[in-house]
């Protein structure tokens, strides 16, 4: 089985977000970039499937510039066999999906794993858009994936519950915590880091998919007014405030 894992590079979850250049740009100074957490769950799942299905390969793909190479090397150190970087700035989800689809049409895979969403753009768009361009099924967010020959059994999250699907490969799956558990996540060890240096990282020229979106500027969320403290022995007062001041109950 040939597995492709799409990884996006995002600010570390502890990053305090600020903007620069008249609020037109995200201020990257001092920011540590990491593999999008949802993609890490997907990558681990891909490695588990590879181990369970001898002869399988795991490739990672990223749309971005050379500044993302450290996170691609990290994915190789965690255990991916090879990597592809489509050499262009990622500007929106449809452009990313289009670029990946061009590569996949020329180099088919049995299973494509993305994250359910990137924690910077919060689009949740790439998995379903990519699947639609390729004309194949998608389940995202996905918290369960079993492969039996050419058939996938998939568990998706929907509001208020879970749904089970089956589909023939190839499929696109948008992973998150649950597709593997937190404790199963893999971290690179010394051997992995050494091996990653010699694993192939293929730089591919972008097809030049256009973007129709432009971020004019950013706003910070409206700050909260000072917190009103209520005495722990006066819950009647809290209920009163929620009813008559905040008007939420």
């Amino acid at each position: 089985m040939k597995i492709l894992v799409c990884i996006s590079s995002v600010p570390d979850t502890t990053t305090k977000i600020s903007f620069t250049n008249n609020s037109t740009e995200f201020d990257k100074s001092g920011v540590q970039f990491v593999i999008n957490p949802n993609d890490e769950f997907g990558l681990t799942k891909a490695l588990q499937l590879k181990e369970a299905n001898p002869g399988s390969t795991v490739s990672v793909i990223h749309v971005g510039s050379a500044t993302s190479d450290p996170i691609i090397r990290k994915a190789l150190a965690i255990g991916a066999d090879d990597a592809i970087r489509i050499n262009t700035e990622a500007v929106d989800a449809l452009q990313v999906a289009n670029e990946i689809s061009v590569y996949v049409k020329a180099n088919p895979f049995d299973l494509i794993i993305t994250g359910k969403e990137s924690i910077d753009h919060n689009g949740a768009i790439v998995p379903h858009a990519l699947a639609e361009i390729l004309g194949i099924p998608s389940v995202s967010p996905c918290i369960g994936l079993e492969i039996d020959g050419t058939l996938a059994k998939l568990t998706g999250i929907v509001d208020g519950g879970k749904e089970e699907f089956s589909a023939s490969l190839p499929v696109v799956v948008g992973g998150q915590k649950g597709i593997v558990e937190e404790r199963d996540l893999r971290i690179p060890n010394m051997r992995g880091i050494m091996q990653a240096r010699s694993k192939p990282l293929n730089i591919v020229t972008a097809s030049g998919s256009a973007s129709s979106q432009k971020i004019a500027n950013f706003d910070a969320p409206t700050p909260k007014a000072a917190c009103k403290m209520v005495d722990a022995n006066n819950m009647e007062e809290l209920v009163n405030l929620l009813q008559n001041e905040a008007k939420v109950i």
Binding site: F26, D120, H121, N122, K214, N217, D219, A220, P221
Partner: peptide
């Protein structure tokens, strides 16, 4: 031009759709 949440709610972006 619409406003969307980004950075998991840590920011908002005004996006122009062409």
């Amino acid at each position: 031009t619409v406003k969307k949440k980004c950075f998991s709610g840590k920011g908002l972006a005004n996006v122009e759709l062409s």
